[in-house]
Nucleic acid binder design. Structure first.
Lengths: 237, 237
DNA sequence: TCACACACGTGAAGC
DNA sequence: TGCTTCACGTGTGTG
């Protein structure tokens, strides 16, 4: 019943033109197979079952074709319209994307491990993943419930050569975790692990990081600055 | 003659990885068909033509299935083995890869140019919560506002009476932590601690929770459902 | 003519 | 149990 119909209702339009659109035939014929209404008490439901099966199968094919069409839509350069070619191009595109991503990640890793001093005293930048606060359109869907980060404890300790461990305890608000993540990202440090533990109404954050400067107090000040920058959304820039 | 027999090899090494070689193998039946020879001289060449057509069609299906299999092999998080699901996951993965590439490129551009003041290029924000306007890229009608959670591992174990520990590993995307937090909140369970560890490009989540039902599989299914609900925005609840 | 690509209906297998 | 997915053979249309 409706279950079948609305279950896979994910049609996004995908009109796109595929060149005169022949052989479509997935224009829903829908109920030209007159045998509906069930109520065949004569122990032979074959007609009804068959028609249901046909409909189901038709629906399945349509779904698969739509997905394939959608796949074609996201792959930039499709050579041919074949189903097999679409999948082939998609595979190549994925591999290409992944290789590029890998290359770029290496580059970024080189770049940020190479020169960190650039950011050491630069607190004005608050994080890469920090946009979306732009309310240039009048609609403000979100009355900012942003609480500042309530720092209860912050300690920085050296461990060995260049490794430092940061322990931070703060109160738990609705968006504190997100803010903490932004703080972590904005640190621009080489972070080995970042652990966030949620317990009761507190957050315990533990960072293991590798830092050339290796000055406890300096790192602590930097973290405090980052927290202050993120914590107060009106202030940055 | 032998032309019919020799089966057309086509150079696409379908083996690749064996990766989760379960017993599924949805169609390697390889139905043998002894009836060749055709040679029906009476006015019905249908046998030869039909057999050739059958063979061709069979070959086409096999090629398409192999391609689909290869596609599944290059997509990391395959939720289901369905054909349609494979394509769906591939689409999401491609969009995710592309968005990530974009984000990383912005990051690298920020990083290598010391001045950040020109962040006013906000018409192209990568954005965590992207408004669904931005169809300036006519090629993709619907850039996804968010990416699914890439679950790499999920285990639930009982510890003692009512205490359970949940271990979850997933890929680290831009908004995965927030999604994980949403998942945790949506569980409506009595959570003792929740620990999120960020290491490399992965997230390790450990939950200690108290649950009356105390059924490992049930809790696991519930978590999977919650992840799926959060991860797939177009299918709420 | 032939080769190719497709949609269709059908029976079977799995959960 | 029914519902879903699948491979199969077949007919049709196109280049």
């Amino acid at each position: 019943m409706e279950n079948i119909l609305d279950e896979y209702q994910y049609y996004w339009e995908t009109n796109m033109f595929l060149q005169t659109e022949e052989f479509d035939s997935w224009g829903v014929d829908e109920a030209f197979y007159g045998s509906y209404d069930s109520s065949s008490p004569d122990g032979t439901p074959s007609s009804l079952e068959a028609s249901k099966n046909i409909l189901s199968e038709r629906n399945r094919r349509k779904k698969l074709n739509d997905r394939l069409l959608a796949l074609r839509a996201v792959v930039p350069n499709i050579t041919k319209m074949d189903k097999a070619s679409i999948i082939k191009d998609a595979i190549e595109y994925i591999q290409e994307l992944r290789a590029q991503e890998k290359r770029i990640e290496e580059e970024i890793s080189d770049l940020e491990s190479g020169k960190i001093k650039n950011r050491a005293t630069n607190e004005d930048d608050d994080g890469i993943l920090r946009e979306k606060r732009t309310n240039k359109n009048g609609q403000v869907p979100e009355p900012p419930p942003s609480f500042p980060i309530e720092v209860l404890d912050l300690r920085v300790n050296c461990m060995g050569e260049k490794t430092m461990v940061v322990s931070l305890t703060c109160g738990r608000r609705s968006d504190t975790i997100m803010k903490i993540c932004q703080v972590i990202e904005s640190l621009k440090m080489k972070i080995i692990t970042a652990t966030i533990t949620i317990v009761a109404n507190k957050l315990l954050i533990t960072l293991f990081l590798e830092e050339e400067i290796a000055e406890e107090e300096e790192v602590k000040v930097k973290i405090e600055a980052a927290i202050a920058a993120i914590s107060d959304p009106q202030k940055p820039i």
